[in-house]
Simulated scan of single mutants.
Amino acid sequence: MSIKETSTDLRVRRTLQMIQDALISLMDEQGFDRTTVRDITARAMINRATFYLHYEDKYDLLEKTVDGMLDELRMTMELPTSFSAEQFNMNEATPPASFVRQFEHLAANAKFYKVMLGPHGAPGFSGRMEQVIEDALFQRQTLAQPHEQHLSLPRELIIRYATSAHIGVMKHWLENNMPYTPNYMATQLKRLHLLGPTHLSLQSK
């Protein structure tokens, strides 16, 4: 790729980022329904022709913005196919790299997630995010223990419980303006997965 092509690609990516940032900012202030393409282009400081070069309308913009972010979240949660229970490492103080990546991703895109999970977010976003997490935890659990008969309770119950806890911790962290580091959160989330809330609450300090 030539220097000119690289420069053009960078400009396009910056433009797309400005448009998406403008959308999220406006959704936070006034909701999606009240936001117009004119509002978005004014906030992003671009002309309407530039907007329509990349998106059909504001609905296309929202869809592509959400799809792109959830794809990024999905990638942070990916595991190697060689993953096993032993690789999870039962040491509570050592968080899985994928858990750390998830919280780093949330921190880097906190504005987006706060808006989307709040009252002005896109309808159905929370459910889609939850599905991404559930799919990733299902992969982790089945790679660690592929044989259903060796589980002490149905896999579907394990995954449902783990998913609710996982996304609940993420939302709480975001809602409270991320008071702890991604590494700390990843460590505590691992402890919750390994030990459960009741065991942790009964442990002596």
Rank of each mutant, 00 (worst) to 15 (best):
S82T: 08
R43D: 03
E175Y: 13
F51Y: 02
P197K: 06
T36I: 09
L61A: 02
Q20F: 03
F103C: 06
G124K: 05
V169M: 13
D39P: 03
Y161T: 14
D67L: 07
S201G: 10
V115M: 04
H172P: 00
V12T: 12
M129F: 13
M18W: 07
M27H: 04
F51Q: 03
D71F: 07
D60H: 00
A97I: 09
P96N: 06
D60W: 00
R11D: 13
G121Y: 01
E72K: 05
T181V: 07
R48D: 05
S126D: 15
M77W: 11
Q87I: 04
I133M: 09
S2W: 04
H199K: 08
I19Y: 02
F112D: 10
H172Q: 14
G124M: 09
H199W: 01
L157A: 15
P119S: 06
W173F: 12
R101M: 02
P80N: 04
K190G: 10
Q203W: 06
Q139V: 15
L157R: 10
H172F: 14
A122S: 15
S25N: 09
L192G: 03
L16K: 00
S25Q: 09
N183P: 07
P80F: 01
K58N: 07
T41R: 01
K171D: 12
A165T: 12
E104R: 04
R155S: 14
D57E: 07
P179K: 04
K4P: 13
T198E: 12
S84L: 02
L153M: 15
M69Y: 01
Q131W: 10
G68N: 02
H172R: 11
Q141I: 06
G118L: 09
